[in-house]
Design a binder for these strands. Structure first.
Lengths: 227, 227
DNA sequence: TGTCGATCGATTGTTGACAATCCTGAAATC
DNA sequence: GATTTCAGGATTGTCAACAATCGATCGACA
């Protein structure tokens, strides 16, 4: 069993720590779209100077989690549903298909073992009804696919997308109910990876991502912003 | 070491100016993949402090133009050809199809007029054999499509992609010869936008982007890295 | 002579102060 | 009473100094 513990922020740079903290606050819903982020306030809250905070804000801006303009306040970004459905998800699909296509040889036993243990944890989370944990494990599953390809640039694009997906998800948690289907889907993916042809995998993957992400993209009942 | 001097960006913040300067140096080939970027050196060269430079470097890192690790030197990023062909270009296609799909109503006369004038300039550049200008106009054409959708996030993804495409292009300029075909292609695109159905436009667009970007992605003769 | 470890210079990370800009709101004018 | 102007505070942008870390060089020791 392997555990991904990403704690020990002690040895990270301040910039990284600030960045993670704010990022978490956003994707966990403590900071909502439109909320203001003031450098001085954050710096006092964390007892550090404004320098690292400014750099962390640049990072977050690059991730698409916040927006800022010169000499004006910086705020948490909005996420549009159409953007998620018709842009982020197709791009996400491209990323994963790319990683699958070019790293066939790297799918070894260790790799499958890791995926398998992630799925096991998903089962536990689903049984416990722990939606948040399940989502994180879902993300880990797909991130593990991407990590096959040793490209920091791919992980960079992925970060931006997945964070925005999380932001969108935060708004729709209540309707996300069929937890066990998520687990079954990923079991099927894992099984296909081990047994099926590239074409079948690609087809299954495509269907899964459109399907799965639809779970995160319910029609939020009345949110019909006409523009 | 060659020195570059840039035009007046007087009203931009220093961070923006540094960012633009370095970005241009990279996509124009003055800085090549692997070259080191030292904060102190840049700050002395530009007669400013290291603060804005550090923030600009964060921006450039987010764009995928440079890479850095803590306390280590930061260098100009590498671009892999497979990444360009099988990832960046499909994503680019998704971006444009998205913008086209959701902004049908915004394609007014002004919009077509702008596209048309871009194409006119392309003709001039093609006739002059000015490859660099042609590429920039090509980019403007497609950027104009994306700007239909009023999303800063889309432009953000686009920036990262287009800069990396430019980096890749820099390596292959010599073989890029059929300038007038580029112009004709864009004329066809413009014509289709004005006259054809959404389906036909989508099909043409898809073909064009795969086609056009192939121009930028020649098999660089012997660069067969076996991995 | 080859390997290990300490020291030093180079580079990045962090800080607190100062400068530039924006926003608010009250006073002045019509 | 409504609009404009201009202070004052709040916030972001920039700077120069200091601290932490890395890499290379040089010397000690087997």
């Amino acid at each position: 069993m392997d555990t991904f513990h990403f704690k020990s922020q002690e040895n990270l740079s301040l910039r990284q720590r600030v960045m993670n903290d704010i990022r978490n606050a956003i994707i966990q819903g403590h900071l909502k779209p439109g909320d203001k982020l003031k450098e001085l306030e954050i710096s006092q809250q964390m007892s550090i100077s404004r320098g690292p905070i400014r750099e962390a804000l640049r990072d977050l801006e690059a991730l698409g989690l916040i927006v800022s303009s010169p000499y004006r306040e910086t705020t948490v970004a909005e996420v549009r549903k159409e953007e998620v459905v018709d842009l982020l998800i197709p791009i996400r699909l491209q990323l994963e298909l790319f990683a699958l296509k070019y790293n066939l040889a790297k799918r070894d036993e260790v790799f499958f073992g890791n995926l398998s243990s992630i799925v096991e944890r998903m089962k536990v989370s689903a049984t416990n009804g722990d939606l948040f944990a399940l989502v994180e494990e879902d993300i880990q599953f797909h991130e593990h696919i991407l990590s096959l390809d040793n490209s920091s640039y791919i992980m960079q694009i992925w970060s931006g997308i997945v964070n925005r997906l999380r932001m969108h998800f935060i708004k729709n948690t209540s309707k996300f109910t069929d937890l066990h289907k998520v687990v079954e889907d990923h079991e099927a993916l894992l099984n296909a990876l081990q047994n099926d042809s590239a074409e079948k995998i690609e087809a299954l993957w495509t269907r899964h991502i459109k399907d799965e992400d639809c779970l995160l993209c319910f029609d939020d009942e009345s949110e019909q912003g006409s523009d």
